[in-house]
Nucleic acid binder design. Structure first.
Lengths: 109, 109
DNA sequence: ATAGTCCGCTACGAAATAAGTAGCGATTGT
DNA sequence: ACAATCGCTACTTATTTCGTAGCGGACTAT
Protein backbone atom coordinates (compact mmCIF):
# COMPACT_ATOMS: atom_id res chain seq x y z
CA UNK A 1 0.00 0.00 0.00
CA UNK A 2 2.78 2.40 -0.87
CA UNK A 3 1.85 5.68 -2.47
CA UNK A 4 1.39 5.21 -6.19
CA UNK A 5 3.57 7.23 -8.51
CA UNK A 6 2.16 10.71 -8.94
CA UNK A 7 0.48 10.98 -12.29
CA UNK A 8 2.08 14.20 -13.36
CA UNK A 9 5.31 15.80 -12.35
CA UNK A 10 7.76 18.16 -13.92
CA UNK A 11 10.26 15.60 -14.96
CA UNK A 12 13.98 15.78 -15.11
CA UNK A 13 13.62 19.37 -14.14
CA UNK A 14 14.62 21.74 -11.41
CA UNK A 15 12.31 20.18 -8.86
CA UNK A 16 13.50 21.88 -5.73
CA UNK A 17 17.21 21.81 -5.52
CA UNK A 18 19.86 23.64 -7.48
CA UNK A 19 21.86 20.55 -8.28
CA UNK A 20 18.96 19.19 -10.29
CA UNK A 21 19.15 22.17 -12.60
CA UNK A 22 22.83 21.43 -13.05
CA UNK A 23 22.02 17.85 -14.00
CA UNK A 24 19.52 19.14 -16.52
CA UNK A 25 22.10 21.41 -18.07
CA UNK A 26 25.14 19.15 -18.04
CA UNK A 27 23.15 16.01 -18.70
CA UNK A 28 22.61 17.09 -22.26
CA UNK A 29 24.73 16.02 -25.10
CA UNK A 30 27.64 18.37 -25.88
CA UNK A 31 27.29 20.82 -23.02
CA UNK A 32 30.14 19.47 -20.92
CA UNK A 33 32.23 18.99 -24.01
CA UNK A 34 31.72 22.55 -25.15
CA UNK A 35 32.63 23.90 -21.74
CA UNK A 36 35.67 21.67 -21.67
CA UNK A 37 36.93 22.95 -25.00
CA UNK A 38 36.29 26.55 -24.09
CA UNK A 39 38.19 26.03 -20.88
CA UNK A 40 41.25 25.17 -22.93
CA UNK A 41 40.90 28.06 -25.34
CA UNK A 42 38.32 30.58 -26.43
CA UNK A 43 37.09 29.62 -29.86
CA UNK A 44 35.05 30.94 -32.74
CA UNK A 45 31.88 29.19 -33.82
CA UNK A 46 33.57 27.19 -36.56
CA UNK A 47 36.59 26.38 -34.45
CA UNK A 48 34.40 25.20 -31.61
CA UNK A 49 32.45 23.07 -34.02
CA UNK A 50 35.65 21.45 -35.26
CA UNK A 51 36.91 20.80 -31.74
CA UNK A 52 33.64 19.05 -30.98
CA UNK A 53 34.11 16.45 -33.69
CA UNK A 54 32.18 18.49 -36.21
CA UNK A 55 28.94 18.61 -34.27
CA UNK A 56 26.05 20.02 -36.22
CA UNK A 57 25.87 23.81 -36.28
CA UNK A 58 22.18 23.86 -35.48
CA UNK A 59 22.76 22.08 -32.20
CA UNK A 60 25.87 24.08 -31.43
CA UNK A 61 23.89 27.23 -31.88
CA UNK A 62 21.18 26.22 -29.43
CA UNK A 63 23.80 25.02 -26.94
CA UNK A 64 25.62 28.33 -27.04
CA UNK A 65 22.34 30.08 -26.37
CA UNK A 66 21.60 27.84 -23.39
CA UNK A 67 25.05 28.25 -21.92
CA UNK A 68 24.92 31.97 -22.45
CA UNK A 69 21.52 32.13 -20.78
CA UNK A 70 23.01 30.16 -17.90
CA UNK A 71 25.79 32.78 -17.68
CA UNK A 72 28.51 30.22 -18.23
CA UNK A 73 29.58 31.49 -21.64
CA UNK A 74 29.71 34.86 -23.35
CA UNK A 75 30.52 36.19 -26.77
CA UNK A 76 33.43 38.43 -27.69
CA UNK A 77 34.86 39.60 -30.97
CA UNK A 78 37.59 36.96 -30.58
CA UNK A 79 35.12 34.14 -30.04
CA UNK A 80 33.26 32.45 -27.22
CA UNK A 81 34.67 32.48 -23.73
CA UNK A 82 33.81 31.11 -20.33
CA UNK A 83 32.49 33.55 -17.76
CA UNK A 84 33.77 33.55 -14.19
CA UNK A 85 30.96 31.18 -13.31
CA UNK A 86 31.88 28.99 -16.23
CA UNK A 87 35.50 28.92 -15.16
CA UNK A 88 34.57 28.03 -11.60
CA UNK A 89 32.40 25.20 -12.87
CA UNK A 90 35.25 23.81 -14.90
CA UNK A 91 37.46 24.03 -11.83
CA UNK A 92 35.09 21.86 -9.84
CA UNK A 93 34.84 19.53 -12.81
CA UNK A 94 38.58 19.33 -13.30
CA UNK A 95 39.20 16.26 -11.10
CA UNK A 96 37.06 14.37 -13.59
CA UNK A 97 40.05 14.10 -15.89
CA UNK A 98 42.01 12.07 -13.38
CA UNK A 99 39.03 9.99 -12.45
CA UNK A 100 38.44 9.24 -16.12
CA UNK A 101 41.97 7.93 -16.46
CA UNK A 102 41.57 5.56 -13.51
CA UNK A 103 38.22 4.46 -14.75
CA UNK A 104 39.61 3.68 -18.18
CA UNK A 105 42.18 1.43 -16.58
CA UNK A 106 39.58 -0.47 -14.58
CA UNK A 107 37.12 -0.82 -17.35
CA UNK A 108 39.26 -2.27 -20.10
CA UNK A 109 39.23 -5.78 -18.75
CA UNK B 1 42.79 27.67 -46.07
CA UNK B 2 42.09 25.74 -42.92
CA UNK B 3 41.46 22.03 -43.17
CA UNK B 4 37.86 21.36 -44.04
CA UNK B 5 35.76 19.40 -41.59
CA UNK B 6 36.32 15.68 -42.01
CA UNK B 7 33.34 14.15 -43.72
CA UNK B 8 32.86 11.32 -41.33
CA UNK B 9 33.85 10.91 -37.72
CA UNK B 10 32.62 8.98 -34.78
CA UNK B 11 30.81 11.84 -33.19
CA UNK B 12 30.36 12.65 -29.57
CA UNK B 13 32.34 9.57 -28.94
CA UNK B 14 35.49 8.44 -27.28
CA UNK B 15 37.77 9.98 -29.85
CA UNK B 16 41.08 9.54 -28.11
CA UNK B 17 40.88 10.56 -24.52
CA UNK B 18 39.16 8.95 -21.57
CA UNK B 19 37.39 12.10 -20.51
CA UNK B 20 35.40 12.04 -23.74
CA UNK B 21 33.94 8.69 -22.80
CA UNK B 22 32.91 10.20 -19.49
CA UNK B 23 31.16 13.02 -21.29
CA UNK B 24 29.35 10.47 -23.41
CA UNK B 25 28.17 8.63 -20.35
CA UNK B 26 27.30 11.51 -18.05
CA UNK B 27 26.09 13.71 -20.87
CA UNK B 28 23.01 11.56 -21.17
CA UNK B 29 19.79 12.35 -19.48
CA UNK B 30 19.33 10.74 -16.05
CA UNK B 31 22.74 9.17 -15.64
CA UNK B 32 24.11 11.73 -13.21
CA UNK B 33 20.81 11.86 -11.42
CA UNK B 34 20.68 8.10 -10.97
CA UNK B 35 24.21 8.03 -9.63
CA UNK B 36 23.37 10.89 -7.30
CA UNK B 37 20.36 9.10 -5.85
CA UNK B 38 22.24 5.84 -5.46
CA UNK B 39 24.99 7.70 -3.67
CA UNK B 40 22.46 8.70 -1.03
CA UNK B 41 20.91 5.27 -0.66
CA UNK B 42 20.77 1.98 -2.47
CA UNK B 43 17.37 1.60 -4.03
CA UNK B 44 15.16 -0.92 -5.74
CA UNK B 45 14.02 -0.40 -9.30
CA UNK B 46 10.69 1.12 -8.33
CA UNK B 47 12.19 3.23 -5.57
CA UNK B 48 14.85 4.56 -7.89
CA UNK B 49 12.21 5.37 -10.42
CA UNK B 50 10.25 7.37 -7.85
CA UNK B 51 13.33 9.25 -6.67
CA UNK B 52 13.98 10.24 -10.26
CA UNK B 53 10.65 12.04 -10.63
CA UNK B 54 8.96 8.96 -12.01
CA UNK B 55 11.23 8.56 -15.01
CA UNK B 56 10.04 6.00 -17.49
CA UNK B 57 10.96 2.42 -16.62
CA UNK B 58 12.15 1.67 -20.14
CA UNK B 59 14.78 4.37 -19.93
CA UNK B 60 15.70 3.50 -16.38
CA UNK B 61 16.27 -0.04 -17.44
CA UNK B 62 18.65 0.89 -20.26
CA UNK B 63 20.45 3.33 -17.97
CA UNK B 64 21.01 0.69 -15.33
CA UNK B 65 22.45 -1.57 -17.98
CA UNK B 66 24.81 1.14 -19.19
CA UNK B 67 25.97 2.03 -15.71
CA UNK B 68 26.43 -1.62 -14.86
CA UNK B 69 28.42 -2.15 -18.02
CA UNK B 70 30.52 0.84 -17.02
CA UNK B 71 31.13 -0.80 -13.65
CA UNK B 72 29.64 2.08 -11.73
CA UNK B 73 26.56 0.24 -10.48
CA UNK B 74 25.78 -3.33 -9.50
CA UNK B 75 22.74 -5.29 -8.46
CA UNK B 76 22.11 -6.88 -5.09
CA UNK B 77 19.11 -8.51 -3.49
CA UNK B 78 18.51 -5.24 -1.59
CA UNK B 79 18.57 -3.12 -4.72
CA UNK B 80 21.04 -1.27 -6.88
CA UNK B 81 24.26 0.05 -5.40
CA UNK B 82 27.28 2.03 -6.48
CA UNK B 83 30.52 0.15 -6.99
CA UNK B 84 33.80 1.46 -5.64
CA UNK B 85 34.33 3.19 -8.97
CA UNK B 86 30.88 4.67 -8.78
CA UNK B 87 31.50 5.94 -5.29
CA UNK B 88 34.80 7.51 -6.31
CA UNK B 89 33.08 9.21 -9.22
CA UNK B 90 30.48 10.67 -6.92
CA UNK B 91 33.24 11.90 -4.66
CA UNK B 92 34.85 13.83 -7.46
CA UNK B 93 31.43 15.11 -8.44
CA UNK B 94 30.51 16.12 -4.93
CA UNK B 95 31.78 19.74 -5.10
CA UNK B 96 29.13 20.25 -7.75
CA UNK B 97 26.54 20.65 -5.01
CA UNK B 98 28.22 23.74 -3.63
CA UNK B 99 28.89 25.15 -7.04
CA UNK B 100 25.24 24.67 -7.93
CA UNK B 101 24.20 26.71 -4.91
CA UNK B 102 26.47 29.62 -5.86
CA UNK B 103 25.34 29.44 -9.43
CA UNK B 104 21.70 29.56 -8.42
CA UNK B 105 22.40 32.76 -6.52
CA UNK B 106 24.10 34.41 -9.47
CA UNK B 107 21.58 33.32 -12.01
CA UNK B 108 18.34 34.43 -10.42
CA UNK B 109 18.78 38.07 -11.34
C1' DA C 1 -5.39 -24.00 -4.45
C1' DT C 2 -6.71 -19.51 -5.84
C1' DA C 3 -6.87 -14.90 -6.16
C1' DG C 4 -4.89 -10.56 -5.21
C1' DT C 5 -0.87 -7.52 -5.00
C1' DC C 6 3.46 -5.88 -5.83
C1' DC C 7 7.75 -6.45 -8.18
C1' DG C 8 11.43 -6.02 -12.02
C1' DC C 9 11.28 -5.44 -16.47
C1' DT C 10 9.86 -5.33 -21.65
C1' DA C 11 7.19 -3.80 -25.93
C1' DC C 12 5.80 -0.40 -28.61
C1' DG C 13 3.87 3.96 -30.52
C1' DA C 14 4.30 9.04 -29.74
C1' DA C 15 6.96 13.05 -28.69
C1' DA C 16 11.23 15.46 -28.26
C1' DT C 17 16.01 16.13 -29.38
C1' DA C 18 20.12 15.71 -32.28
C1' DA C 19 22.31 15.04 -36.88
C1' DG C 20 23.16 16.38 -41.55
C1' DT C 21 23.12 19.41 -45.35
C1' DA C 22 22.30 23.51 -48.00
C1' DG C 23 22.63 28.12 -48.16
C1' DC C 24 21.90 33.33 -46.83
C1' DG C 25 23.81 37.74 -45.66
C1' DA C 26 27.92 39.88 -43.72
C1' DT C 27 32.88 40.43 -43.60
C1' DT C 28 37.62 39.84 -45.28
C1' DG C 29 41.19 39.32 -48.33
C1' DT C 30 43.09 39.80 -53.37
C1' DA D 1 34.80 43.04 -58.49
C1' DC D 2 35.45 38.46 -56.93
C1' DA D 3 36.19 34.58 -54.11
C1' DA D 4 36.58 32.69 -49.65
C1' DT D 5 35.25 32.38 -45.06
C1' DC D 6 32.32 33.43 -41.31
C1' DG D 7 28.25 33.00 -37.98
C1' DC D 8 24.14 31.31 -38.17
C1' DT D 9 19.32 29.61 -39.83
C1' DA D 10 16.00 26.42 -42.25
C1' DC D 11 14.66 22.24 -43.08
C1' DT D 12 14.61 17.01 -43.40
C1' DT D 13 16.05 12.69 -41.43
C1' DA D 14 17.73 9.82 -37.65
C1' DT D 15 18.12 8.82 -32.85
C1' DT D 16 16.74 9.21 -28.16
C1' DT D 17 13.45 9.66 -24.63
C1' DC D 18 8.59 9.30 -22.91
C1' DG D 19 4.40 7.21 -21.57
C1' DT D 20 1.60 3.52 -21.04
C1' DA D 21 0.10 -1.15 -20.90
C1' DG D 22 1.12 -5.42 -19.41
C1' DC D 23 3.84 -10.07 -18.75
C1' DG D 24 5.69 -13.55 -15.65
C1' DG D 25 7.49 -14.37 -11.03
C1' DA D 26 7.32 -13.92 -5.91
C1' DC D 27 4.80 -13.30 -1.94
C1' DT D 28 0.28 -13.13 0.84
C1' DA D 29 -4.26 -13.77 2.29
C1' DT D 30 -8.33 -16.40 1.93
Amino acid sequence: MTTPLPKKLVRGSTSGVAIMAVFDLLGRKWNMRIMWELNTASLSFRALQEQCDGMSPSVLNTRIKQLTEAKLVYTTSEGYKLTELGLSLMNTLNPLRDWAAEWEEEIKQ
